[in-house]
Amino acid sequence: MEPVTVHAEIAEPSRLQLGEGSFWDAATGRLYWIGIEDRRVMWLEPATGEVTSLELDTMPGTLVPYRDRRVLLATQRGFELLDTATGALRPVAEVEADRTHRRMNDGKCDPYGRLLAGTMTLDEPREPGPLYRLEPTDGGTVRAVPVLDGLAIPNGLAWPEPDRLWYIDTPTRRIDLYAYPEHGPVGPLIRTIDTAQLPGDPDGMTLDAEGNLWVAFWGGSAVRCFGPDGTLLETVELPVPQVTSVAFGGPDLRTLYITSAATGTDPGDGLPHGALFRCEGVATGRPGVPWAGPGA
């Protein structure tokens, strides 16, 4: 059976240098996404079409909702709580505070509501770093604990089951399935989906209700859907090359939202680099997991 090909359309045209971190928040009816190099948090309310943008004083690497319209960010400084009503940022836990040449990148909450995000260098050469998990302490605060090391560009995460983690370290051009204990380090490696023969490099990722993986491909002008066995099932084509993250949203989780980046592209070519895209009805997604808070 040949893979199906469909096309995405523009949902919001802002030209972000590095759009990322799409997340549907069912509690507020918002589709959140971020501009990493743009230092912006954005959200779309599809019910009204309203788009809001907040400027930050740091680069956000990922975003997950918390409560009361607050969101938890992974930034250059570590984990920080953003009040979207006021724009105020509050530190939650420092990460690599003495390593200013690094920043946090893509992340997600695990099935227990704990946020995981990795760090990466700002420039070449790539210096390997860890994936951190935000965990509670006995004192009622949280701390960032490394759970997987040796990562160059930490990106997509997805849990098909509570004890299994799909993970992407982009330069490997693989999607790796790890054992995921409730406590302790990630691993061991169980198996791998090799994407080296496909155009582009795997970046952000999400799961649908059937357990299929939807993966954004940086430099590949596409989101590709893989079955759990690695079979390529479907391709969503985009009119821009740098495709970065994916999230199912809308009240029925039937809209696939896709972020992109303008970095490294020609601003005069007339293409919608850095825009937010959507594709309707390709599958039904799974609800995203918000941060459970300091007690998770």
Rank of each mutant, 00 (worst) to 15 (best):
I10C: 08
A11K: 11
R15C: 09
A27H: 02
P111S: 02
L115V: 03
E182I: 10
A88H: 15
L157N: 10
S22H: 01
L31G: 09
F217K: 12
T52V: 11
W24N: 04
S22Q: 10
T244P: 11
V147M: 10
Q17V: 12
G270K: 00
R191C: 13
L238D: 01
S221R: 11
D169A: 07
P160S: 08
E135G: 06
P294G: 04
E45R: 15
V215D: 02
V243W: 08
M205A: 05
P228R: 12
T121F: 00
D123I: 02
W43S: 06
D57I: 03
P154A: 12
P241Q: 08
R133L: 08
R70G: 10
T192R: 03
P60I: 04
V71K: 12
G129F: 07
E45W: 08
T255W: 06
D266Q: 00
G107N: 07
W214F: 13
R133N: 01
V243C: 00
R254G: 09
G200I: 04
R67C: 07
P185I: 04
D169S: 04
F23G: 06
V92L: 07
E80A: 03
G19R: 11
G220W: 03
Y132N: 01
V64E: 01
R102G: 03
D138A: 15
G113M: 03
I190L: 15
A209S: 15
A88I: 11
V147G: 12
K108S: 05
G78M: 07
H183F: 11
H183R: 13
S53F: 05
L198V: 04
T119F: 01
V240I: 01
W166M: 04
D169C: 01
Y180S: 14
A261L: 02
S53T: 15
L232G: 11
G29S: 06
A292H: 03
R102E: 12
P199C: 05
V6I: 14
L82N: 02
E9A: 09
I258C: 13
P287A: 08
Y32H: 13
T75F: 05
D83F: 13
N155A: 11
P267T: 01
R15P: 00
M205K: 08
K108H: 10
V186K: 05
C225V: 00
Q242N: 14
R286N: 00
V236A: 02
P154E: 05
T170L: 02
T58L: 06
D229T: 03
T121R: 12
G274P: 02
A296E: 03
W166C: 02
P65V: 13
E2Q: 13
P60L: 08
